[in-house]
């Protein structure tokens, strides 16, 4: 549904986005992760047809964005980071103004706006958008992004201004939209947020895509390399005896606890050996790389 090919954007001689190759499937909830200034928003601006790439191209639903930005805008919705509205108009009037660009007739506009305002809990709010709180603006932003019932939804830092209840509702909404077959592209620097809703992620750093896949795949790809070794954590009730196995590469011991670095998964053999020595096993598991640590390492680069 979304594809970029060597997508590049250069500002003042510096590449904000550098040769980005990305693919997001239909109906996916894709998390676009990266630290501030990584090039996430610039990528979204190119994908939504608001700025032209310096090099490469991007396609949404098979349409090349730079060649036909209007056609793309008709099938996408976009919630910008720190979304803004016309302060002298109510939420309903703001939505009506935007809805007119889609050629919707008055009745259809009225129905759609009422439906969306109810969805984001802004129905019955008579005050002007200039008097809205940041959370209210964010919810109105979500409504304006959905005004045309888009196939693809781009959300840039969508939970930045929401309270916990708003965040919960937003997550439910995103999952419901994906359930309807819409593709959701969520840009965020908050891992927990992406983790909560996204099925696949792409990690961007300094304008380049560092990894793409499910969160576990990305974490594994980016974890400090032990070659093909497996880290097995073992904790026993009694003193942990010395264990011999040709597959064991190294052992880090700490009282009743140890981390075995082995060439393959030898948990069965370790369990049998401990059982035969009458040692009770409290815990035995393969240690996955800590996703937070992996991402923080990338963020700090």
């Amino acid at each position: 549904m979304i594809r970029t090919e060597n997508l590049t954007k250069v500002y003042n001689g510096k590449a904000a986005v550098d040769g980005l190759d990305l693919e997001v499937g239909e109906g996916d909830i894709f998390g676009f992760l990266g630290p501030n200034g990584a090039g996430k928003s610039t990528t979204i601006l190119m994908l939504t047809g608001m700025i032209e790439p310096t090099g490469g191209r991007c396609l949404v639903d098979g349409i090349e964005v730079a060649k036909d930005p209007l056609k793309v805008k008709e099938i996408i919705g976009y919630l910008p980071e720190d979304v803004g509205f016309y302060g002298n108009m109510t939420g309903e009037e703001n939505l009506d103004y935007f809805a007119r660009f889609y050629g919707m007739d008055a009745r259809k506009r009225k129905e759609r706006i009422a439906e969306l305002l109810e969805l984001v809990h802004l129905d019955g709010v008579a005050q002007k958008a200039g008097e809205y709180s940041r959370g209210m603006k964010q919810r109105l932003g979500l409504a304006q992004a959905l005004i045309n019932d888009p196939k693809v939804l781009f959300l840039d830092e969508p939970t930045a201004n929401l309270d916990p209840e708003g965040v919960r509702e937003y997550r439910e909404l995103v999952l419901a939209l994906a359930g309807e077959g819409k593709t959701v592209f969520v840009s965020s620097h908050i891992l927990s947020e992406v983790r909560a809703v996204c099925r696949t992620v792409g990690l961007l750093a300094k304008g380049k895509l560092v990894a793409q896949g499910t969160l576990d795949e990305v974490a594994r790809t980016l974890a400090p390399s032990d070659g093909d070794a497996v880290r097995i954590v073992v904790e026993t009730r009694e003193h942990l005896p010395a264990l011999e196995d040709p597959e064991i590469v190294a052992v880090e011991r700490n009282g009743n606890r140890a981390v075995f670095l082995a060439k393959t998964d030898i948990r069965d053999r370790l369990a049998a050996s401990l059982f035969s020595q009458g040692v009770h096993v409290r815990e035995m598991r393969i240690e996955e790389p800590d996703i937070e640590d992996v991402f923080m390492a990338i963020y700090r680069r």
Binding site: T48, M50, L70, K73, E74, G77, Y78, P80, D82, V83, G84, F85, Y86, G87, F98, F101, Y102, G141, Q144, A145, I147, N148
Partner: peptide, 17 residues
């Protein structure tokens, strides 16, 4: 003013040149 209130970005995200 549209730049200051960021409404220009919202407007440009809709199908209008």
């Amino acid at each position: 003013k549209e730049k200051e209130t960021r409404s220009l970005k919202s407007l440009l995200s809709h199908p209008v040149y």
